[in-house]
């Protein structure tokens, strides 16, 4: 309980946020990093790549090389069917879980 609450919450959900982003479209590292840093889900791109490596090891994400619109060939990441199914499972659980937590920590209506 002594660790920063925000850090603990982020740790639990940030991988699913990556899956959620990749469910919309395949993305390259910087694209993902920019969005996650802007949302303060990660502090820097240094956290992203170990996470991508973990997700790929688990078979949830895969990567491929493709020339981007601006020219250079980039490594893109996309969801695997297993990743999509994992994300769906998380979606089903997240809402009731958040609602349950709120019943305990939410302020009483005044």
């Amino acid at each position: 309980m002594t660790a920063d609450v925000g850090t603990q919450l982020r740790k639990g959900v940030v991988e699913f946020c990556v899956l959620g982003l990749l469910a919309r479209e395949p993305m390259y590292g910087w694209q993902l990093s920019e969005k996650l840093v802007a949302a303060q889900l990660i502090a820097s791109i240094g956290t992203l790549y170990p996470m991508l490596s973990r997700l790929r090891t688990q078979g949830l994400v895969t990567s491929y090389d493709e020339a981007s619109a601006s020219g250079p060939v980039r490594k893109y990441y996309r969801l695997t069917p297993q990743g999509s199914s994992q994300l769906e499972t998380f979606r089903l659980q997240w809402e009731p879980f958040a609602a349950t937590v709120f019943t305990f920590v939410g302020k009483d209506p005044e």
């Binding site: 390259y28 590292g29 910087w30 791109i45 790549y49 490596s53 250079p72 060939v73 490594k75």
Partner: peptide, 10 residues
């Protein structure tokens, strides 16, 4: 290796 390559691409 993956991170350096990704940043180099960028």
């Amino acid at each position: 290796a993956e991170m350096v390559a990704g940043i180099r691409e960028e």
